[in-house]
Write a protein that binds this DNA or RNA. Structure first.
Length: 349
RNA sequence: GGCGGCAUAGCCAAGUGGUAAGGCAGCGGUCUGCAAAACCGCUAUUCACCAGUUCGAAUCUGGUUGCCGCCU
């Protein structure tokens, strides 16, 4: 026998349910399914490689469902970086409201954790207003951290990170790796010796919290989603996509990418900044500083954009939940969305 | 027509008798607070072709083809 219970009348389970929204309890021989009155929020995810047309797809779909868009793009968060990030145009933004775009200056610190913390409340707020969120972007890690959150470690204080970086420079990454083998052999085994990036992160987690990063990871594992999602991945033949990318780079140049970068630098944003090291921006800087001539600048910009697209495809291909569709809003897409919305949050035995 | 030089992966290219460096480009993958970042792996059974010398040839010899120079 199965009981569907309202957790509000079972305060003992409340803590669990607040976290999971749904749960299973045993009572003698009976299985009791518990379902929160307030189900997990729903969200449509729209992902895919750069240049495939996520923005226009999302705007059209969000418009017809009267939803709002939450950007999931690690570069469109920056103000003043418009052309090179292929930011949604003012016109597009007037059709559908966009969140998580233009939220920090190019020299402000930002990371996946900030993204997750800032975007989740938006999803909740939309749910309260009964508006469907469309999470759209190409930054796989950001999407993942919005859906599942990241493991809950203490924030790293800058001193630790700086100190570790200095060690890396002075004594080489190998030293750090050896240290990691001492304190967190599990992680050391998983990482490549040259992966100083993650070696550093593992060590800083250890030094600030006293626990190996692998402990946190084993506890987290992206198991508990904070929302239910329908994921659309936009797909296109590789050759066709690459042509589009080449064309879009040319269009960005015509639209004045070089001037945009010049202006950013004049405003005091240096080439060292993470934002300025992104695709397009670093290429313009290479040209402005004479490291590359113009044809070579364009060539490498196109090449690096294609490589980036490739990495994104690898990321999203690994996600079995993604429903791959043509980058055109079809009736299939609309039907799937409708189905997803009408679907009760049913807990199956 | 004669003489000389060069032919090695999609491109550049090392290798002058001992079993095909490297770079570019490409492809595949990883990803838990820098992610448009960072990192890893793969890519010539074969050196224009044919024959010969040799235990052994991309490397030597002869011929063929192609390209590039110079000369007539």
């Amino acid at each position: 026998m199965v009981w569907i219970l309202d957790p509000d009348s079972y305060p003992l389970y409340t803590i669990i349910l607040n976290k999971f929204q749904t749960g299973v309890a045993r009572h003698g021989n009976e299985t009791i399914l518990m379902q929160s009155k307030q189900p997990k929020p729903k969200a449509i995810i729209i992902c895919g490689p750069t240049g495939i047309g996520k923005t226009s797809f999302a705007v059209e779909l969000a418009k017809s469902f009267q939803g709002e868009i939450i950007g999931a793009d690690s570069m469109q968060i920056y103000r003043h970086m418009d052309i090179g990030t292929a930011k949604p145009t003012p016109a597009e933004r007037s059709v559908v409201r966009h969140h998580m775009v233009d939220i920090v200056d190019p020299d402000e610190p930002f990371d996946a954790e900030s993204y997750a913390t800032l975007s989740l409340p938006i999803v909740m707020a939309l749910q309260a207003r009964q508006v469907l969120p469309f999470v759209v972007g190409g930054t796989g890690l950001y999407i993942k951290s919005l859906i599942y959150g990241l493991f809950d470690a203490k924030p790293v204080d800058k001193e630790v990170r700086i100190r570790l970086k200095q060690v890396a420079e002075k004594e080489g990454a190998a030293t750090l790796f050896e240290r990691l083998e001492q304190v967190d052999p599990v992680t050391a085994r998983k990482l490549h010796i040259n992966d100083r990036y993650r070696i550093l992160r593992a060590l800083e987690v250890y030094e600030t919290s006293g626990l190996p990063i692998s402990d946190y990871q084993q506890r987290h594992r992206f198991q508990e989603s904070r929302m239910t999602t329908l994921k659309f991945g936009l797909h296109m033949e590789r050759d066709q996509l690459y042509d589009r990318i080449d064309g879009r780079v040319d269009a960005m140049i015509h639209a004045g990418l070089l001037d945009e970068v010049r202006r950013l630098r004049e405003s005091g944003y240096s080439g060292e900044l993470k934002s300025m090291q992104s695709i397009g921006y670093r290429h313009m800087l290479d040209f402005l500083d004479g490291r590359l001539d113009w044809p070579e600048t364009i060539r490498t910009l196109k090449r690096d954009t294609r490589r980036y697209a490739k990495r994104q495809m690898t990321w999203f291909n690994a996600d079995r939940e993604v429903v791959w569709v043509d980058p055109v809003v079809s009736s299939k897409v609309e039907n799937r969305t409708r189905e997803f919305l009408s679907d009760q949050l049913s807990v199956k035995k």
